[in-house]
């Protein structure tokens, strides 16, 4: 099977995008045109922050698993089958 490192990169990218969204929400806190209440804004920032950290941890675990699989030696042939 493929090591799954690429998959970890994609999940990491999505996590980074969620952090970017949390950052944009934080940046827009003083926007006079916004209809978002401060409470909703804080909840969303915290939610996206927590979820992105969770995704980053998950992506790291997949990456470590992929690295371990790549380092594993190939299986030996069963001599009795010869």
């Amino acid at each position: 099977m493929n090591s799954g490192k690429s998959r970890s990169g994609l999940i990491g990218l999505v996590a980074a995008y969620l952090i970017y969204i949390a950052y944009e929400l934080y940046q827009g806190r003083n926007d006079p045109k916004t209809t978002m209440t401060p409470a909703v804004r804080i909840i969303c920032i915290v939610f996206f922050g927590v979820v992105s950290v969770a995704l980053l941890v998950y992506a790291y675990r997949i990456w470590k698993q992929g690295s371990r699989e790549e380092e594993k030696p190939p299986e030996k042939e069963d001599e009795s089958l010869k």
Partner: peptide, 17 residues
Amino acid sequence: DQHFQYIVKGFVLLAAV
């Protein structure tokens, strides 16, 4: 609101992942 749009986009991507 543009900020709600960010939230919706985030949720759509999160749901797919």
